[in-house]
Computed example of a mutant assay.
Amino acid sequence: MNDKFGIKTMLETEEGILLLARAVNPKVPSMMIDAITLLSALCILPQPVDMHEQVLVALTQRAEMDEVERFKPILDGLKSDTSVALKELHAQDNEELLVHLLLFEEYAEEDSAELKNRFEEIRIEMDDFNEVFQILHNTVKDSKAEQHLLSILQHLLLVRNDYEAR
């Protein structure tokens, strides 16, 4: 297999990295693994300059095409691969492995409970208007949603000063 020729050709085309980013599809796990492996390798290449930036731009463009978050396909692939792998491991007849799996699942449940508690604490702090606005603003800052939030706030300013309308 001539990997150098393929990578060189891909880097010479304008949409080469984007095509590779579009191959990150959790529905086709083997292709996704190969695409992620190549994208990871591109990120550490010394030349051309800022390859990691180009990979991030390609992942962002791909996400915008599919209207999803940038790393959602990667996370979906990890989730499905992890659940399949855990099922396969549980099916094996190895007592020591089962002990480790039970420990893993116990820690996963503890982590999940801790994460839920953190979100509960955040909800408690939602009583102050300024804090809520700051959290909301920081969440959408420098994203596509920032302009939408601004538009919503501008429209709220147009609500009539009428008790019944509010």
Rank of each mutant, 00 (worst) to 15 (best):
K4V: 07
T9A: 12
L11D: 08
E12M: 12
E12D: 14
T13P: 00
E14D: 12
E14K: 05
G16D: 03
I17R: 05
L19T: 00
L20Q: 06
R22P: 00
R22D: 01
R22C: 04
V24I: 06
N25I: 04
P26N: 02
P29D: 03
P29L: 06
P29T: 03
S30K: 08
M32H: 02
I33M: 07
D34E: 10
A35K: 01
L38N: 07
L38M: 08
L39E: 02
A41G: 09
C43R: 15
I44C: 05
L45V: 09
L45K: 11
L45M: 15
P48S: 09
P48I: 13
M51F: 05
M51E: 03
Q54A: 10
V55I: 09
L56C: 07
L56Q: 09
L56M: 12
A58W: 01
L59E: 02
T60G: 02
Q61D: 11
Q61S: 09
E64R: 11
E67A: 13
E67T: 14
E67Q: 15
R70W: 00
F71Q: 02
P73I: 02
I74H: 01
D76C: 04
L78D: 04
L78H: 03
K79Y: 06
D81I: 07
D81E: 06
S83N: 03
V84T: 10
V84H: 04
A85N: 04
L89S: 11
A91F: 01
E95K: 12
E95H: 07
E96C: 01
L101M: 11
L101D: 05
L102D: 13
L102K: 12
L102G: 08
F104H: 08
E105K: 13
A108R: 15
E109Q: 12
E110T: 07
D111L: 14
A113V: 11
E114S: 10
L115R: 15
K116M: 15
N117S: 11
E120M: 12
E120T: 13
E120S: 15
E121Q: 12
I122D: 05
I122E: 09
R123M: 13
R123S: 12
D127T: 15
N130A: 14
E131M: 13
E131H: 12
E131I: 10
E131T: 14
Q134T: 09
I135Q: 14
I135E: 11
H137W: 14
H137Q: 11
H137I: 03
H137M: 10
N138Y: 07
N138Q: 12
T139V: 09
K141S: 13
K141A: 11
K141L: 15
D142A: 09
S143G: 10
A145H: 12
E146M: 09
L149H: 03
L150P: 01
L150Y: 10
S151D: 14
L153M: 14
L153E: 02
L153G: 01
L156R: 08
L156H: 04
L157I: 02
L158E: 13
R160A: 10
R160E: 09
N161F: 01
Y163Q: 06
A165G: 00
A165Q: 05
R166C: 05
